[in-house]
């Protein structure tokens, strides 16, 4: 069993070349694992949730990005996808779910309502979920198409790729979450 010279890095899983070694940093490896297995907490509040479901279904298949394991328990999830209109009545519930999610965690504001209140300039609607919890990625659209959600997910993956290790984050005081 000899590996061909054309083999690239991702053939590391190929049993034919078992025994080859990849050298990396632990931080990079951890980030790589995290970004490719994001377990979303679907916070479906309005029509955006329909697009979120479509993204999870076969045609768009969010599993291609390793984020297909929708967890309905916040304690098992990594990324909160706020998809829909956050009313003031619901806002504290969203905040509570966010607080229950273990670190490391990320948040995506999906669509106009979650990002800014959208067309609901109203007494009843929170004007953007970022007033309550920190948001990593905003996705425009009303509602965004599944492609837009996937683009947002890829943006989040790129962000996670460049993150410092948790140790380093704790060491530097200015990187503390708002």
């Amino acid at each position: 069993m000899v590996s061909s010279n054309e083999s690239t890095l991702h053939t590391a899983y190929d049993s034919k070349i078992e025994g080859n070694v990849i050298i990396t940093r632990v931080d990079a490896a951890i980030n790589w694992m995290r970004k490719n297995s994001l377990w979303p907490m679907p916070m479906g509040l309005a029509c955006c949730a329909i697009e979120l479901m479509a993204t999870g279904a076969s045609r768009y298949d969010i599993a291609r990005f390793g984020a297909e394991v929708m967890r309905f328990s916040p304690r098992q999830s990594d990324v909160l996808i706020v998809s829909g209109t956050v009313t003031y009545k619901m806002a504290m519930a969203v905040k509570r779910i966010w607080d229950q999610m273990p670190e490391p965690k990320w948040c995506m504001a999906m669509g106009a309502c979650a990002s800014s209140g959208g067309m609901y300039r109203s007494y009843a609607v929170l004007q953007g979920i970022d007033q309550l919890i920190p948001v990593d990625v905003y996705i425009s659209g009303c509602p965004p198409r599944p492609e837009a959600l996937l683009e947002g997910l890829m943006t989040l993956q790129k962000k996670i790729e460049t993150e410092e290790s948790t140790m380093a984050q704790k060491a530097s005081p200015d990187s503390v979450e708002a």
Partner: peptide, 13 residues
């Protein structure tokens, strides 16, 4: 719950 005042000018809608 807390409520605020929504901006009625300058929004995209």
């Amino acid at each position: 719950a807390n409520t605020g005042v929504a901006p009625l000018e300058g929004g995209p809608f």
